[in-house]
């Protein structure tokens, strides 16, 4: 339901960077959204998280 540790912004971006090819595009998107939000002063668009998972099927 919820983890008790904070997911710090810097660490979140870094987990994506550390994922190499798989995560680099994600990191760039996160970083650019952060910059865009700062320049425009608008909040970042909402994201509807759900219990639906996004897991890979490779590991069963």
């Amino acid at each position: 339901m919820f983890s008790y540790l904070d997911a710090a912004t810097g660490s979140m971006i870094n987990t994506a960077i550390a994922g190499g090819v798989a995560g680099l595009g994600v990191a760039v998107k996160m970083w650019s959204a952060r910059i865009k939000s700062k320049i425009t002063g608008k909040p970042m668009p909402d994201f509807d998280s759900s219990d639906e998972d996004d897991t890979a099927s490779a590991h069963d």
């Binding site: 997911a7 990191a27 998107k29 959204a33 952060r34 970042m44 994201f47």
Partner: peptide, 8 residues
Amino acid sequence: MKKQAAKS
């Protein structure tokens, strides 16, 4: 950032 991370 958590929401944005998911969206990204």
